[in-house]
């Protein structure tokens, strides 16, 4: 047996799980176990108690929201994000990002909430929820609170969740005009990305039709907004020409580290290239959608 000894609780409800976290400050939530258990087997993590969420049914599943977006339970598996017709229709960026995670057996167990709470800087789902401007719902002993994705990722494996809080759901806004894109570079299929980029147009604030959010991952201590590149991408400006300008601006937004996989310069170069690529992808999808719509409205 590789991990250090621990106590195991199969929680039957969210309240029971929250109670366990309050009772034992060294306790940890067990979701898919695809990040936590490797760390336990290497003894990089030694929780005193594992609070297993897998039998808490209320934490799984995908619901359609009235605004055209989604409410997705934290225990929803990566495979279900990839295959759910509702996610593919309403949050295709999230479905595509999930398809890039690891291998099938990993995606079958790993969960949306686990990936966000773990907050690996090279992970796909944190980048996707940040690009979507999603809202994360956390439950704690004092009740529930809603955290904007912009305020959730605080640094290397660090999030805004307190030790006694559980991520219960993620709310995604609708995509605007089918304008989204996702790309990453990894050495082998299923590896963590050396660098990646995601872009999404979502409904704008009052008076503006859309906001375009651009994110890079694998190139800083957390997924980062490429704000200096976003300014090239106002709603009417989501064009192939603007893609090149955004790509050029993107490299200056991140502080990549060098490691065995890639140098810092190479990562910065990738961020430029991938930014340009995802913006072109988004512009192409939007053009195809608009053409489809106008053909539809002209047909007799």
């Amino acid at each position: 047996m590789k991990p250090a000894p621990f106590a195991y609780v199969r929680a039957r409800s969210l309240d029971e799980a929250l109670g366990c976290l309050v009772a034992d400050p060294e306790a940890k939530i067990l979701a898919g176990g695809q990040s936590l258990v490797p760390m336990m087997n290497m003894r990089l993590a030694r929780p005193s108690t594992l609070v297993d969420l897998n039998a808490v049914a209320e934490l799984s599943g995908v619901d359609a929201a009235a605004d055209g977006g989604l409410a997705i339970g934290a225990l929803t598996r990566h495979t279900d994000l990839v295959t759910s017709p509702l996610v593919r229709e309403r949050a295709p960026l999230l479905a595509t990002a999930a398809a890039h995670i690891g291998h099938r057996a990993i995606r079958n167990r790993g969960t949306l909430g686990g990936s966000l709470a773990h907050a690996d800087p090279a992970a796909e789902l944190p980048a996707a929820v940040l690009a979507l401007g999603a809202t994360l719902v956390a439950a704690g002993p004092g009740g529930r609170r809603r955290i904007a994705a912009d305020d959730f990722f605080l640094g290397l494996f660090a999030t805004a969740l307190a030790a006694d809080e559980i991520l219960v759901a993620v709310e995604t806004p609708p995509h605007r005009d089918a304008a989204w894109g996702f790309a990453e570079v990894a050495r082998r299929a299923g590896d963590f990305a050396i660098a990646g980029a995601a872009v999404a147009a979502i409904p704008g604030d009052v008076g503006r039709s859309a906001r375009v959010r651009l994110v890079a991952f694998g190139v800083d201590d957390r997924p980062i907004r490429l704000t200096a590149a976003e300014i090239h991408l106002g709603d009417p400006a989501l064009t192939p020409d603007a893609a090149a300008a955004a790509g050029a601006a993107a490299a200056g937004c991140c502080h990549p580290a060098a490691d065995v996989h890639a140098s810092a310069e190479y990562r910065r170069h990738l961020v430029s290239v991938l930014t340009e690529q995802v913006v072109r992808e988004a512009a192409g999808r939007r053009a195809a959608r608009r053409e489809g719509e106008s053909r539809w409205s002209q047909s007799p």
Binding site: Y8, R10, L30, G33, Q34, V37, P38, N41, L50, D52, N54, A55, T79, R104, A105, I106, N108, R109
Partner: peptide, 14 residues
């Protein structure tokens, strides 16, 4: 569904 049996605890499989 396929799963890594090294990343599951037997106690989870009720």
């Amino acid at each position: 569904r396929s799963a890594r049996s090294c990343l599951l605890f037997a106690a989870q499989l009720e």
